[in-house]
Design a protein around this nucleic acid. Sequence first.
DNA 1: GCAACGGCTGTTACCGCTAACATATCAGCC
DNA 2: GGCTGATATGTTAGCGGTAACAGCCGTTGC
Lengths: 353, 353
Amino acid sequence: MIAQKVALPVTKLPSPDPRRPLTLRDVSEASGVSEMTVSRVLRNRGDVSPATRDRVLEAARRLGYVPNKIAGALASQRVNLVTVIIPSLSNMVFPEVLAGISDALDDTGLQPVVGVTNYMAEREEAVLYEMLSWRPSGVIIAGLEHSDVSRAMLENAGIPIVEIMDVDGTPIDSMVGISHARAGREMAAAILNAGYRRIGFLGTKMPHDHRARKRLEGFQAGLAEAGLELADTEFYSGGSALLKGREMTEAILARTPDLDFLYYSNDMIGAGGLLYCLEAGIDVPNRLGLAGFNGVELLDGLPRRLATMDACRREIGEIAAEIIAGKRQSDLIGGERVELTPKLQFGDTIRSR
Amino acid sequence: MIAQKVALPVTKLPSPDPRRPLTLRDVSEASGVSEMTVSRVLRNRGDVSPATRDRVLEAARRLGYVPNKIAGALASQRVNLVTVIIPSLSNMVFPEVLAGISDALDDTGLQPVVGVTNYMAEREEAVLYEMLSWRPSGVIIAGLEHSDVSRAMLENAGIPIVEIMDVDGTPIDSMVGISHARAGREMAAAILNAGYRRIGFLGTKMPHDHRARKRLEGFQAGLAEAGLELADTEFYSGGSALLKGREMTEAILARTPDLDFLYYSNDMIGAGGLLYCLEAGIDVPNRLGLAGFNGVELLDGLPRRLATMDACRREIGEIAAEIIAGKRQSDLIGGERVELTPKLQFGDTIRSR
DNA sequence: GCAACGGCTGTTACCGCTAACATATCAGCC
DNA sequence: GGCTGATATGTTAGCGGTAACAGCCGTTGC
């Protein structure tokens, strides 16, 4: 129990500071072996005799030692963190991506660390800078659109980067997602095929939600192929999405009463619209069809199933995490590109023709 | 541009490694000053002449230097991270707490890092251990119930700890929250006062959601004071909460048709129940009253406003963060204890007597 | 009997940065 | 001129771990 330290030069002696965080040295002294051996035991690295191992573990437990990853990371040049950057947490969509990531990372020793940008490019830069300065082993980031500065940081980080949710563009390294342009186009095709012609769009005003924009553009392109265009549009920002959906639906129908279909940029406002229509006694889907986007779980509980398109959120998270963890045998130069295909769910709000 | 290093002993020379992460040294060489001066410039610490400052900043920018916080933290014994531990992200409730925390931390230089436990004590231990090993400057953690090991870690961490959401118990250090027991009791009082007598409870099966449990116990205590007890109960786990609310409501009413009030442990299942009742043509609130808990934004979009109780989530997050950031002038020994009072919102689903 | 070897443990030299102190420079002042 | 003090910059010694290698010891093979 008595340490035989050689006179430490000028250094402050490890006097019995109260509440000084414990170090390897404390455990080493308590168990009578070198710091190196303690380190080996605690990391299960290298050969250590069972007797020594037990002694060390007992001492570590008794003292309540918690390793200092900062020091460990600096010395080993290895950090078990994966940076995850998403626009929002209040969207229901991103937590599901996170769940996929967490699951896939669970048995890898890697740990996701989340940063939120609120759909703002400058926030993205700031968050990225902050996160990269912890030297993570990988980055998973939503979207393909980044500022020049962000892009440069990602390119120079020297670690795997996976851009997720979207594949309409050129990735820095890997990408996993769906084509929102295609999703919009397919929805347009399905709606036209069902015979609807006077179509309105309701969505978010946010100019930085590139995926919503791409869906809209794809949708418009799909209509254009049939020689049609949107009969009316309505945008919102902020507030309770469900309520906004309700209000916007009322507004757009008041303004353009002959609409026969409403395409919502997300399920939440779609659900609000659906509730409004049912209350207003509108015949859905015959007089008016409705569709949203995302395939959120919430829809299961509504009076009628809203047509939607599943965005493969969980799967996107899982695959992205696997790429970072190196679970996918990619011999490709450059990163992987994985395009998932969302499936359209007709529900009860598109008539079957 | 040429470094005059004295023959580095056995060390590998800083040869022109491709993709080697940049260090202070690179910036120092590029700008012709010492590493220390670069460090000063980048941290805005100490006096540096404007000319030098500009030169250094220019070089750092040009090279794309990102500081290594791992090394910085180790040297300065300071880490700008705040650990936040919550049970779930898919609950809508916790993201709002997070938003409050983020906001309050925004101008402090501190950065929240989130860990999720899924309501499992062992996960909490594991996450806590992992997080504490990064030596954060504070911990915000949901709930007052922790395993002995977790409690010991928190007590020994030597940093401020704020337990949030709940005040029914003894905190390790500080606590900020509401009394769920009281919330349950007050809801019981309001319901009884409105004349309801045959009351059912619907909630989650999760045995580790201590706050839901405390609300139920408080509620029962409130009923007991009037000589009543719950007429029936129904529990669920997993799945779409909205749908479960619907299904459970149907089930409990089928089993016990004479119930005149349903108290839901959260708004989401309450909303499902509300939708079910409206469709089933049940007269709410006269034949049957309904109430939930949390005051989630979603309720604004429903056909009728569900009675609920606001859990002060955002405010809890803000106050917790302020405590960690030292913004509150607390001269108390030990931590602060802040009890917020949720207010009951009657909405349209409790009759007014 | 001895070199070779494998299992176990210790020693040394950093990882990249910063606190603390030392040094250089220069203006102002008696 | 010499001293003081402020300003600007450099030097040194770690922070708490880990990689790499060195050393010790008892076997093993021949």
